[in-house]
Simulated scan of single mutants.
Amino acid sequence: MPTNWDDLKLFLAVARTQSLSGGGKALRLDPATLSRRIARLETVLGRALFVKSPQGYVLTDAGEQLLPHAEAAEAAVQRVELAGAGSAGPEGLTGQIRIGAPDGVANFLLPQVCAAIGRENPNLDIQIVALPRVFNLSRREADMAISVSAPSTGRQTVQKITDYKLHLAAAPTYLHNAPPLLTRADLGRHRVVGYIPDMIFDKQLDYQSTLEQDRVALASNSVSVQTNWIRQGAGIGIAHDFALPVIGGIKRVLINEISLTRSFYLVRHSDDRKIARLNRFADRLLSGLRDEVNRLEALA
Score class of each variant (00 low, 15 high):
S138T: 15
R139H: 15
E141I: 06
A142N: 04
D143H: 10
I146F: 01
S147T: 06
V148L: 09
S149M: 03
S149E: 05
A150K: 09
P151G: 01
P151H: 03
P151I: 00
S152Q: 15
T153A: 12
T153Q: 14
R155A: 15
Q156M: 14
V158D: 00
K160S: 11
K160P: 10
K160W: 12
T162Y: 08
T162F: 05
Y164A: 08
K165V: 10
H167K: 12
L168G: 00
A169Y: 01
A170L: 02
A170E: 02
A171T: 03
Y174M: 00
N177L: 13
A178G: 02
P179E: 03
P180N: 09
P180H: 10
D186I: 04
R189F: 10
V193E: 03
I196W: 07
I196A: 10
P197S: 14
D198G: 14
D198W: 12
D198S: 12
M199V: 09
I200P: 02
I200H: 04
F201E: 05
D202T: 14
T210L: 09
E212V: 13
E212P: 10
V216L: 02
L218W: 06
A219S: 13
A219Y: 04
A219V: 11
A219Q: 08
A219L: 09
N221P: 08
